[in-house]
């Protein structure tokens, strides 16, 4: 026997070096990751059911989030179309109306200004309401001349301020910015954000419970094994590891399934939604999750699965403390 061999076989075991231990540790991680995946594949039905439960729990808040994102895009589109209607005094002659229009046009906070004379206004009114000759009997035009003003800054606050100032202009009767509904839409979006957040938290808890319960069953099934490895010196981290990997795999798988379900659902919804949008004259499409959103979903679901497993195993480990 060579000297090297005999020295390696010393009576006392020499501790493996730090580097060796780290390499062994990494190898063990790889092994456990693979094993836990194989274990999940060994009971396909149960795994699939868990994955679907996770996916469903993820799809709902994700859908809400997408719709909310869509609403925000819509918001901005609508802000782009923000405009003011300025009604001039009915007594104003057409020439004076043009002067007022020019005056407004010179303001820095105003973009395009379009004058609609009283006659044009009546004409448009007739055409849009399809009144035919019903207005022929009027002896004078009841409509004032008006200006359609496009503000430079299109936030509801700026538009409202501009309306206030335009009301002060000589010859202006009323300036109306029909921004109230836009304001309401913004409030609704804000409310929607909170609802998405609440649902998100609730369904994240759901994922935690689903994975937790699945892992709890796995722990029960491997009770003997846990007992044995604990008795021969396994740390809690060692005992936890396979279950944490199982939980993370379940989370990741559930997340991927959720992305598939979302893609299918969005495909199904997108054509009626864009039809609805175009009927309102905006060209709007439901935005997808995109790469970052998808990645975020996967990371969240994986972390949730991992956390659920941690809690489930932790409960079991706490029961094994020496009394």
């Amino acid at each position: 026997m060579s000297e090297r061999m005999s020295s390696r076989r010393g009576a006392n075991q020499q501790a493996p070096s730090f580097l060796q231990q780290r390499r062994a540790w990494q190898a063990h991680h790889r092994q456990v990751a693979r094993d836990s995946l194989i274990r999940l594949r060994q009971r396909p039905l149960g795994t699939l059911m868990t994955l679907f439960a996770i996916a469903v729990a993820l799809v709902l808040p994700a859908t809400l989030w997408l719709l909310l994102g869509g609403a925000q895009v819509l918001d901005r589109n609508l802000e782009d179309t923000a405009q003011l209607t300025v009604y001039l005094s009915p007594s104003l002659e057409e020439a004076s109306a043009r002067e007022v229009a020019d005056k407004v046009r010179q303001r820095a906070d105003v973009g395009r200004v379009e004058l609609i004379t009283a006659a044009e206004g009546l004409h448009q009114f007739q055409a849009s309401l399809d009144l035919g000759d019903a207005l022929q009997g009027l002896d004078h035009n009841p409509l004032p001349a008006s200006l359609v003003v496009q503000p430079v800054t299109r936030t509801p606050e700026a538009v409202a301020a501009l309306a206030m100032q335009l009301r002060q202009v000589n010859g202006v009767d009323e300036a109306s910015a029909d921004m109230q509904w836009l304001e309401r839409l913004k409030q609704l979006t804000r409310l929607g954000q909170r609802i998405v957040l609440a649902f998100g938290a609730l369904f994240a808890l759901g994922v935690l419970l689903i994975v937790g319960n699945t892992i709890r069953l796995a722990v029960e099934n491997r009770r003997d094994e846990i007992e044995v490895v604990t008795l021969i010196g396994a740390t809690h981290a060692f005992v936890r590891r396979p279950f944490l990997y199982s939980g993370a795999w379940l989370g990741l798988g559930g997340g991927m399934l959720a992305l598939v379900l979302l893609a299918v659902g969005m495909g199904w919804l997108s054509s009626p939604l864009s039809a609805l949008a175009s009927s309102y004259g905006t060209d709007w499409e439901l935005p997808g999750l995109g790469f970052e959103g998808s990645l975020l979903l996967l990371v969240c679901s994986t972390v949730l699965g991992w956390l659920g497993a941690w809690i489930a195993v932790g409960r079991h480990l706490a029961r094994m403390r020496p009394r």
């Binding site: 060796q20 003997d224 010196g233």
Partner: peptide, 22 residues
Amino acid sequence: QLLFDRTVFDNVALPLLIQGMP
């Protein structure tokens, strides 16, 4: 208390695996 889902070799290796031996 052997683990029936793995081979004799893997059963015996368990304590070493736990200790992080190469």
